[in-house]
């Protein structure tokens, strides 16, 4: 009876499960969703999922931070025709990847003491660093409308349509006050991928870059902007790394 519906699995690795929550929070659309897809494996919604069936689409959130994560991801990859990374941790490591560049064993020991030595904890990796990823939905967490749009697109055999321009574009469309230019606050808008419809700036909260960088961020020039407003280069780098590793910005004049 359900054999013809595309099969879907929704999974979480190391993360806060916020992206899976967004899916469960699609309350008005959940019935339409299960009407058109057969959700086989979604532990957060129901135990007793089918762990072995092939999946037309697998949505995976979270970063790879343990051996177990890595094995789980590889099993999902083997089952799935299309693997979709959802959320910033899955796309680029997310907040745990802030530790990028630290000496990992001593960082673990600093936090957990000697007991840390026994932990199965690895530096955060994005899904694409471990397996082939077909599509990505950015966000911390993902946007409901982008998830539902992506499902609709994928069921029609199309790649999800997502904006690749910066948050500033959506911010200007909404006529929000510019927190960077007019208020001199540290706003990641010019470097961050849009799709959130500038939610934070619309509440006068500067963008923190949770959706990750635009595909071609001009880090050199952005560094000049931020430092000219009084932030030190070290602080700029720290802030830009909140949601994952970025290439170290260099002033525009020194760019290759």
């Amino acid at each position: 009876m359900q054999a013809t519906k595309p099969t879907v699995g929704i999974f979480g690795l190391t993360g806060c499960a916020g992206d899976q929550l967004v899916i469960l929070n699609c309350e008005d659309e959940l019935l339409s969703l299960v009407d058109v897809v057969d959700i086989r494996d979604f532990l957060m919604a129901a135990s007793g999922g089918d762990e072995f069936s092939t999946l037309d689409i697998a949505f995976v959130e979270g970063a790879v931070m343990t051996r177990r994560d890595e094995e789980k991801l590889q099993r999902i990859r083997r089952r799935a025709k299309a693997l979709v990374a959802i959320g910033t941790c899955a796309l680029q490591g997310g907040v745990p990847a802030m530790a990028d560049g630290l000496d990992w064993p001593s960082a673990v020991r600093d936090v957990y003491g000697p007991e840390g030595d026994g932990f199965d904890a690895l530096p955060a990796r994005a899904l694409h660093e471990c397996v082939e990823v077909d599509f990505s939905l950015p966000g911390c967490p993902i946007e409901k409308h982008e998830f539902l749009g992506a499902v609709a697109d994928l069921l029609n055999g199309n790649p999800p349509q997502l904006p690749t321009y910066a948050v500033c574009t959506e911010c200007k469309m909404r006529e929000c006050d510019c927190l960077l230019v007019d208020q001199g606050r540290f706003c990641h808008g010019p470097l961050t991928r849009a799709g959130c419809r500038a939610r934070c700036p619309s509440y006068a909260v500067p963008c923190v870059g949770c959706r990750g960088p635009v595909p071609d961020p001009n880090l050199g020039s952005a560094m000049d902007v931020y430092t000219s407003k009084g932030w030190s280069p070290e602080e700029v780098v720290q802030r830009l790394r909140t949601f994952g590793p970025l290439p170290t910005p260099v002033p525009a004049g020194e760019a290759a």
Binding site: Q161, Y165, A166, C168, T169, C171, K172, M173, C178, G189, P190, L191, V214, D216, P217, N218, G220, S221, A222, D224, V225, A252, A255
Partner: peptide, 23 residues
């Protein structure tokens, strides 16, 4: 080109920029 962030702000606020995308 080295300075521009491609943030799109100038085009959005321009009274005569009329480019659009259709999807």
């Amino acid at each position: 080109g080295a300075k521009c962030l491609s943030c799109g702000s100038c085009s959005m606020v321009c009274p005569t920029c009329y480019c659009y995308d259709v999807a």
